[in-house]
Design a protein around this nucleic acid. Structure first.
Lengths: 293, 293
DNA sequence: GATCATCTGTGCATTATTGCACATCTAATG
DNA sequence: CATTAGATGTGCAATAATGCACAGATGATC
């Protein structure tokens, strides 16, 4: 009923140990990457847990009380243990540095994932990413990939499946092409083998008698052709919007939105490395292809 | 930009160390007093921080991986340090056990605070409470009390002042009295020295020619008289509602609501013991006299 | 073999924590 | 002595963490 005497929150001890070493709430806050108010509250919480005053709060500094010095002397040991844990963890991770293989549609692999791999690796040196942009679906059941990004929901029941983004499409062309009378616009599309794709169906539905004068088997080719002024191409917004040469054209019919799915087998998905990568992918794709517009 | 490689949250380590010792999320959760889902998330968070898999998650148990055993072996040292901190803190607190003196209106002291002092002391053996129910306001500036509970807002600017409750009043009598025709009801009130109190003003406003046949200088006397069937008394709801003999009567005019204030000098209010007591009082009074109905 | 108790995982509502902005104070500097 | 920079404390909005309820799985028990 009386909640004041709860067990110590170890994170309170952590923040206190940094305050003890740095001498001020603000300096501790900078080192911890939090607000100084948070450090103040955490230390106050520790004082309540211990029923001890650890810090004299003055307007410009927060020197430790004698009791605070005593507790800080013990907390220092926890700092040492934490550093030992981090070193040990790095050693364990390095001795079995993890390879996580991702299969994704080529544009997603090259334009959404690849640009961010550097920062991911910097944060997680123990994880190596292998990103395959093959256009056919890699077989997860044969361990050709650990993670798969798909533009349609995988049907296998035993997979862990997560919807991580919504890909929006638009019609893009150069400024010169965009300035032409609409009736004289020409189009760039996939070849017939990909006529089933939602964005291809959509593109065909807005032709209104206008010609497709170039067919490519992938988006990169379509993008290059559009950039060269050949005509208008249906593209994911993350490609079109980030291309300084291209502009989005107004259209009579709403373009499609395709869900982006992330799939993995459960046993693989339990691995913390794979989960870390899943989180990273969800963040990257969620940012460029948000679930809500 | 990539948040996955944050510094370790020490509380994650804490939860992991309990999981390591107890063998299951549910057992760890019971010991920690949290939900098993919370333990699971905390351990997952630690795994992401360390980029290590610490636990094999099976449907009914969560055995440690070899890496988990290694990290748990280090985390045990943090457990030992935490216990040492707690013992040291208790020793420091006992060597200067704190007396915190509270001044409060008599009914608040006796009926709201006193019943909960046992549990407070159990949780905080290093703090002794002295609760004074004197009806005149103890002087904080002369250190007659460390904390004061007041039914009107203290006017001294230099005090820390906190509104901790809203006291509601009602008219209470025995069931037999309540069954009488309203015109024949008699009343119990304070004596004239307390005519300025809001609840006394209210009571006089609803008399409608009916008599006050008993005057008492405090609420206890009024309560006992009401319990004896003498008539109806205006009382705080926390007294009337908790008295099995009394029932609340319907009234034509809304009874008053009086704010409950907690006051202390800032230097005293910085003491963690005093703050602990302030939190306790705010909880107790906030529960019986909530700020919002 | 059926049933039950207890475990883990997850979506969503609720609660707690944190960040932000501002006020106030003080030490350092010119 | 005036000004400035940087510290702490606090109310409130925003965000994160937690609890709850439920589903599904499994080991123990009958």
């Amino acid at each position: 009923m009386c909640n004041n005497a709860q067990m110590i929150d170890w994170q309170d001890l952590h923040y206190f140990s940094v305050l003890a070493r740095t001498g001020s709430l603000s300096a501790a806050a900078r080192e911890l990457g939090v607000d100084h108010a948070t450090v103040g509250r955490r230390v106050a919480s520790l004082e309540q847990s211990l029923s001890l005053r650890l810090v004299d709060r003055l307007p410009r500094r927060s020197p430790l009380t004698p009791e605070g010095v005593a507790i800080a002397g013990l907390a220092v040991e926890m700092v040492a243990v934490t550093h030992a844990i981090e070193r040990r963890a790095r050693g364990l991770a390095a001795s079995s540095t993890s390879l996580v293989r991702i299969s994704a549609p080529p544009a997603v692999a090259a334009r959404l994932i690849a640009p961010h791999v550097v920062e991911f690796h910097r944060a997680h040196p123990g994880i190596t990413l292998a990103v395959s942009g093959a256009s056919q679906n890699a077989a997860l059941d044969r361990s050709e990939a650990d993670l798969a990004i798909r533009m349609s929901r995988p049907s296998e029941k035993e997979l862990l499946i997560r919807r991580i983004g919504a890909m929006h499409f638009g019609l893009y062309a150069t400024r010169e092409q965009a300035a032409l009378p609409p009736a004289s616009l020409a189009f760039i599309a996939y070849d017939a083998a990909l006529d089933h794709l939602a964005q291809q169906v959509w593109l065909r539905s807005i032709l209104a008698g206008r010609p497709i004068i170039f067919q490519a088997s992938d988006l990169f080719g379509q993008q290059e052709a559009a950039r060269a002024g050949l005509g208008a191409a249906a593209m994911p917004c993350f490609m079109g919007d980030n291309d300084p040469i291209l502009v989005k054209l107004p259209v009579e019919k709403l373009p499609p939105v395709r869900d982006v799915w992330l799939a993995a087998y459960p046993d693989v998905g339990r691995s913390p490395d794979v989960r870390t990568v899943m989180t990273f992918l969800a963040q990257i794709i969620g940012r460029e292809c948000p679930l809500r517009d």
